[in-house]
Design a protein around this nucleic acid. Sequence first.
DNA 1: TTATATCCGATAATTTTAGTCGGATATATT
DNA 2: AATATATCCGACTAAAATTATCGGATATAA
Lengths: 132, 132
Amino acid sequence: MLKLTRKVEYALISLRHMQGKSTDSISSTKEIANHYNIPVEILAKTLQHMAKENIIEAINGPRGGYRIKAKLNKINLVEFFEKVEGPLGLSDCFYDANCMQIEFCNIRTPIQRINNNMINMFRSMSVQDITN
Amino acid sequence: MLKLTRKVEYALISLRHMQGKSTDSISSTKEIANHYNIPVEILAKTLQHMAKENIIEAINGPRGGYRIKAKLNKINLVEFFEKVEGPLGLSDCFYDANCMQIEFCNIRTPIQRINNNMINMFRSMSVQDITN
DNA sequence: TTATATCCGATAATTTTAGTCGGATATATT
DNA sequence: AATATATCCGACTAAAATTATCGGATATAA
């Protein structure tokens, strides 16, 4: 409950790794996977996904890899989590109403308050707050 | 990602339900399950669990059921979540170090900061903030 | 005595998350 | 041009977590 997924963790690890190097230097999937003991194939997916979201940039071919493209201090953690994992919320009913309880639910409003607190907390932090 | 479990939701729904009645009145599993469209058996488990944690009190036999035992304004949400679901944390590594990455992990400290923010946020709210 | 309720361990089903495989495309180097 | 190394990407499988079910026990009010 209330956990980050590995995908998000791998994404953050990769960004921090890239940020530790000079701006134009390139990191390959294999390099990152080996360094942090992450399965290559799944890391590849994650990096491709971030590339599609314009967080990083892919360079094809041998000696290729990825480098940071976006301003990480301009991406807050809600944006980041949603780009990597999809919609965020303590309960599904805040973005997808398919719930058997919803008609009688007596806690939706109070939980939504907490949800807002959580969202605001994550929104107040940027990706760079983690990768720096 | 970052969701409450149904168990926690069922627990909160039940508490709010009980709190809406006079202090000594008893709510049976079946009554709550029917009212909120929750599977009886799993709700039974959840209520039994809360009884064991002394949040509610079980009354056996026919016309039995449960009623609130603890002071809900004295239980903060971290305590409550941990009583119902076990240890809380954005990543397992904050309470169970069995992680392939831990030796090389470059984001553990920053994520722990966020984790603390989240924990503090939940600690600042009581169960009663939801059930009232 | 009976009916109705909690109690509780074992197990099954479902959903989500994590990881694998196969083969395509792009490009630097030789 | 050939080759090696990298990304790209859909389909698939596996594992783990969550959710739900089953069977039968115990407690007690009526």
